[in-house]
Simulated scan of single mutants.
Amino acid sequence: MANPIEQQPRHYGFLLTPNFPLMSYASAVEPLRAANLLTGRTLYTWRHVAATGRTIRASNGVDIVADSRIGDAIELDALFVCAGGNPALFREPPTLAWLRSLARDGVMVAGMSGGSYILARAGLLDGHRCTIHWEHIPALEEEFPRLEIRRTLFEIDRGRVTCAGGIASLDMMLALIERDHGPDLAAEISEWFLRTQPRLGSGSQRMTLRERHGVSNGKLLKALALMERRLEEPMPCAAIATDAGVSPRQLERLFADHLHTTPQAHYLAIRLDRAQSLLRQTPMAVAEIAVACGFVSTSHFSRAYRRRFARSPREDRHGAQSAG
């Protein structure tokens, strides 16, 4: 690694899409500012790029004025695509073509939060490890089943970098700064932002089942894990009980005591939540979603969906598309 004093600044771009998540963006750009400030040198420069127009509005209403638009002749070592909302709806051919052109020219391309979806649609994640915010994983898996999708905080694989977003963007950027300028500077920046426990890219995005549900019973946790793994082909609750090492009656009692519901109701709820995610973020037909979430018929799926969400699958899809 060259001495930072001898290195030329690295030029980063941030392609922000409408309703981009401000947390993901700020967590990525602030470490660059800190690197310059703490060393007293311009190690990084950055600029904002818009697909259209000159102003990009974040999901919380904050506006960022773009320095450039896609296709402009700008010097870049890396481009970070930051997207939120429903990235599956992003289908702008000029942007996708520009991303492919940058990658061909050797520019590192990165996706943050939903930005990984846009890279996938541009064909830039084929043959690379990648990650994305857990909310978008089901849709990405359905549309791009051959991708090597990890449920990690971030992935750095050759010229592709992907990140789950949120504060994981800080972890990702610190890893890149460490690669450029060594662990001492990365540690100093980490302390600057009160990040006292470094997180590896391989870390999990979500809480464990124990943390998420606030339970510690091992047999119940095993049952919950089985349910989350078997959504397309649901297991009978009696089989889940057997695998968890309890009787069906004991399983009922565990769910009642710890989660205040029944195994059947909990299993149905997580399948319907998955269905809602696919409905809002993929073009899959309602019948295909029903099958993917373990329902024997579209009519059964629609009735259960309406009971849980107070609207039909088609109404929900129409509302999500209108909002997007």
Rank of each mutant, 00 (worst) to 15 (best):
R104W: 03
F90A: 08
D243E: 15
R199S: 12
A26G: 05
Q8S: 15
Q7C: 12
P93A: 12
S68C: 12
L254E: 09
L194W: 04
C130N: 06
L254D: 04
G84I: 00
L231K: 14
I270L: 15
L99P: 07
R41M: 13
N19A: 11
G111I: 07
L278K: 11
S101D: 14
A310Q: 10
R317N: 05
T162I: 05
G324S: 15
N86C: 02
A285W: 03
V65D: 08
S101A: 13
S312H: 03
L102R: 06
C237I: 12
W98Q: 07
R274F: 08
A66V: 09
C130Q: 04
I118D: 07
G71F: 12
E135H: 14
P87D: 09
R230V: 01
E141I: 07
N3L: 11
D171S: 13
M235P: 00
A164R: 07
R206Q: 14
N3E: 08
T17C: 06
S322T: 14
R230H: 15
T152Q: 11
Q197P: 00
V62F: 13
A51H: 03
P4A: 02
E188W: 00
T298H: 01
L174A: 03
P4Y: 12
A265C: 01
L32C: 04
P93K: 01
Q276K: 15
A275H: 09
L268N: 13
T196L: 14
H300S: 13
D157R: 10
R129I: 03
A304F: 02
G203F: 10
A78M: 14
L170M: 13
A164E: 06
P145E: 06
W98Y: 09
E148M: 11
H300V: 10
Y44W: 07
G245Y: 13
P263I: 08
V246H: 05
V62P: 02
P145I: 05
D171C: 11
H11K: 13
A225P: 04
V81L: 05
G201T: 04
